[in-house]
């Protein structure tokens, strides 16, 4: 019997390469790449905060801005596609100033204490968030602020987004004092991944915030507790309840944690799980962002269904 010969898939069309110059160095990247891709190919470390490998760029934080010769303003590296013969500068005085101001603006208004790269960016760009004055006190009524209205400030304190942490369910907490409004959780909850649409950006300007309808508690919202918003949150504003409790008790210690790769036992899809274990207890579950089934996403069972593994208290 002859072996069965499977038909070959036709080859994909060749990708055109685009040549451009970044910081005086010529570089070629495939058509459709972003300036950030070109920077990374050259090993130029470009700061990012709202950029997520698994999401469309929101280009909201603007810390990745670069200078494009001939352009009136700076442009975001994370979303701008390369064009032939672009001349890009990533470390000019204008770029450094804008990056410094962005990280200062965020550090002076948001709690970046557990945002890994924030301190590095502040040092790299000589940011001094303290020059805007001491932080204004938290506002428990931030969710009620109205578009187009604010009280005139006296300037003696710096306005912040600080507010009480929202703990309204046993699975995860929302500490919007740490929110930089990167839009990633909204995109992950909505049309880019989960299609649940439980959260949105509400309000306007500095009072814009991530919210359910009428800021209702999560159990009353459309939330399905997939935790895919936690997976993309860059600042720790969204956090496992287990992690939050350990941090509260000052016993959270990543150096004591191990990460174990396994496969979710609940259904047949076969999502990869990374179990974060501290003191022989699972404290959080993630999935690799580059995994071609999950892209970092899970469902409520994979993400939160681990209590039965932990020893009973």
């Amino acid at each position: 019997m002859n072996p069965i010969v499977l038909p070959m898939a036709p080859p994909a069309p060749a990708t055109r390469l685009i040549s451009l110059t970044v910081d005086e160095q010529p570089v070629e990247v495939p058509e459709g790449s972003t300036i950030l891709d070109a920077c990374r190919k050259l090993g130029i470390d470009t700061p990012t905060l709202c950029y997520g490998e698994t999401l469309m760029p929101a280009n909201a934080c603007r810390i990745c801005v670069v200078e494009l010769e001939g352009a009136r303003t700076l442009i975001p590296a994370c979303s701008r596609k390369v064009e032939p013969d672009m001349v890009i500068r990533t470390d000019s005085e204008r770029v450094r100033l804008s990056r410094k101001m962005v990280i200062e603006f965020l550090a002076s208004s948001v709690d970046l204490s557990i945002t890994p790269p924030a301190q590095d960016y502040l040092e790299r760009y000589d940011g001094r968030p303290e020059r805007y004055g001491p932080s204004a006190p938290p506002d428990p009524d931030r969710d009620k602020r109205r578009a187009g209205h604010h009280e005139r400030p006296d300037g003696q304190t710096a306005a912040t987004v600080h507010q009480p942490t929202k703990i309204d369910n046993g699975l995860y907490v929302r500490d919007y004092s740490k929110c930089i409004l990167c839009y990633k959780c909204v995109d992950a909850c909505g049309e880019q991944w989960q299609n649940t649409f439980a959260i949105t950006v509400a309000g306007r300007g500095f009072d814009a915030r991530i919210s359910t309808e009428y800021a209702n508690p999560l159990p009353e919202s459309a939330c399905v507790y997939c935790g895919n918003c936690i997976a993309v949150c860059p600042t720790g504003a969204l956090m496992f309840k287990s992690e939050h409790d350990l941090r509260d008790a000052a016993t959270w210690d990543e150096s004591r944690q191990t990460r174990t790769e396994t496969i979710c036992p609940y259904c047949g899809v076969g999502c990869n799980l990374t179990l974060h274990v501290q003191d022989n207890e699972i404290v959080k579950v993630t999935s690799p962002a580059d995994h071609d089934i999950t892209r970092g996403n899970l469902c409520i069972k994979g993400r939160f269904g681990f209590q039965h593994v932990n020893p009973k208290a």
Binding site: R62, F105, L106, S109, P153, G155, L181, G205
Partner: peptide, 29 residues
């Protein structure tokens, strides 16, 4: 500050910091 949509950091926070600095200048503090 009131009319900024709030999408990007430079405008969302910059308009607030600008207003605060002007308030300090106007009050002399």
């Amino acid at each position: 500050r009131d009319e900024s949509c709030g999408q990007c950091v430079p405008c969302r926070v910059g308009t607030v910091r600008q207003e605060e600095a002007l308030a300090r200048l106007a009050s002399g503090r």
